[in-house]
Design a protein around this nucleic acid. Sequence first.
DNA 1: AATGACTGGACAAACGGTTGCGCAAATTTA
DNA 2: TAAATTTGCGCAACCGTTTGTCCAGTCATT
Lengths: 337, 337
Amino acid sequence: MPNPPTIKEIAKRLNLAASTVSRALHDHPRIGLRTRLKVQELARELQYEPNQTAIFFQQKKTFTLGIVLPELSEAFFSAAISGIEDTANKSNYMVLLGQSHDDTEREQKIVEIMKNHRVDGLLVSLAKNTVNYAHFEMLRKYNIPVVFFDRIPNMPDIHYVASNMESGTIQAVSLLLQRGHRVIGMINGPEKLIASQQRTTGYQKAMQQQRLKYDASLNVNADLTKEGTRNAMQQLLSHKRKVTAIVAFNDYVSQDAVQYAVEQGLEINKDITFVSYANLPISSYMAFPPLASVEQYPYLQGQKATEILLELLSGKLAADRYQQTVIDSRLVIAPGR
Amino acid sequence: MPNPPTIKEIAKRLNLAASTVSRALHDHPRIGLRTRLKVQELARELQYEPNQTAIFFQQKKTFTLGIVLPELSEAFFSAAISGIEDTANKSNYMVLLGQSHDDTEREQKIVEIMKNHRVDGLLVSLAKNTVNYAHFEMLRKYNIPVVFFDRIPNMPDIHYVASNMESGTIQAVSLLLQRGHRVIGMINGPEKLIASQQRTTGYQKAMQQQRLKYDASLNVNADLTKEGTRNAMQQLLSHKRKVTAIVAFNDYVSQDAVQYAVEQGLEINKDITFVSYANLPISSYMAFPPLASVEQYPYLQGQKATEILLELLSGKLAADRYQQTVIDSRLVIAPGR
DNA sequence: AATGACTGGACAAACGGTTGCGCAAATTTA
DNA sequence: TAAATTTGCGCAACCGTTTGTCCAGTCATT
């Protein structure tokens, strides 16, 4: 009732040294069978539970992984975190959560607190406008490994897992070309994002494969807000060539874009066709789900990133051998299309 | 570079006792101004950071809150967790996450691990089929307070925050009555769920207010699966009276029900009108969003539950004065309806 | 019987910080 | 000027566990 039993308590009751009890509980070979059993029995009887905070302190390890990501309410991240959690739990690690809400300052603060909490390692997906990585660089000094996933920083010498948007984009654009579209608009993300660049490259390659010429003015950068999307749509719909299909940055952007198109009196899938990224589960309920969507395997990304981090922690992987895993994205065509 | 500076290190350099340094850093009044400043300056210079694990150990506190909930991918919970996190962070608490995936066994295991990790308190939303609460009762022995939210156990002497579905249901049914509907079907949840009972009561009261008679055969219990919903719809549409409006258990159920109605050749919002619960952000993208939806304030619930837990921890609230907060739900009518 | 090798366990330090108590010097009070 | 009080700091214990080292007894070997 009052204080939980400690190793010392057990030692006292059995007239043993604390060290002996500790070793006995760990099945250390130097402890005789008789005493070992005696100790283990009493421990069970007293419902002894090792004080983890003491162990954390002593071992300089907390068996805790910090997760920093923008928004759990985005389906991608809530799926990713399931992959992370499941993998971490398998190795008896716990998961400390922090949402940056896409705010760099908050991201910095979270990292700071997590460092102070002495997490063993960090899994990070960047806030949308983070361009300065000092708060992550700083972790090197503390030997806290970081594995980035999905939204990764644009710098060398990091561990990361990301999906390659290029392959999915090629598939997406090719599908549209195959269905006869020739003027394809792209609502891309912020220019500096690697994911945006990959989409651009994918677009270019798909056109090239068909010996078609790539028109940069059809590829507009937006900021992923509703307003930004609407502006991008306006720009595309007033293009001198008539845009008949649009590749949207993700399913959310796609929906905003669709809404705008409908407002402009366009008929979806007739006047204009949409393809996007993410493949959200809710898209089956949507008024106008995209013709196809590029699946990014969030669960798998979370799982893979965690596996890498755990191996880094166990020393199986050297910290200076940078692990960079790319998961190919894949186009999923909506059922019945 | 190698090991971070400790309090002892600072003490040695300044020829002081560790205790003096500790007190100086805490602005203890018994330490002279001169030494205090000297200490603080050197600390800054060496970039001293207190070792939190040592402090956790010493203070028997971890400034960590455990969160156990069914599924982050459900919009309700990802919103709730934001409320939890924001509130916790304000008081410098961190948040340890565990998803039960609606599996009682996993829930038990998570609670056990969190107990071992010495979380200061727990925020819990039950797995759907948890009926045995021993793993939570056990926490009393360890003086770990628990605050339940949304999905709360059916027992006395607990702290909880939950929304009252009754008020929202009254508003929902009243709205339909006001718009002329007289035969209103309800797709309710499992009978034993408190939330289902509240919906029933709300339905009855709304009818009563208008001196109308409540017809129990219009209120059918379903199991929230797609199949269950379709069966319920079939039952309602074949009712001897012609059902012109339906109150669905939540937005997901609503969508399945709408789908069924469309298949049956009914025209939504003309032949039949839907109202539901949850008020999901995605509903604005849905093909046939409900006319109105009962908002349950997930962020607020998470926030409130956390506030209670923090006050319990700070001693502002006595552990045996059970805090039971009910947040009234409220009908939100879809824009333009 | 003496030497050596094991066996089983005790002792103590260490992890980093906090805190009650004691004590000398400085200052105030009577 | 002596006594009382305050100021400023050091000493040491403590939180619970792990781990390197040391010691005493037991056994086997020659």
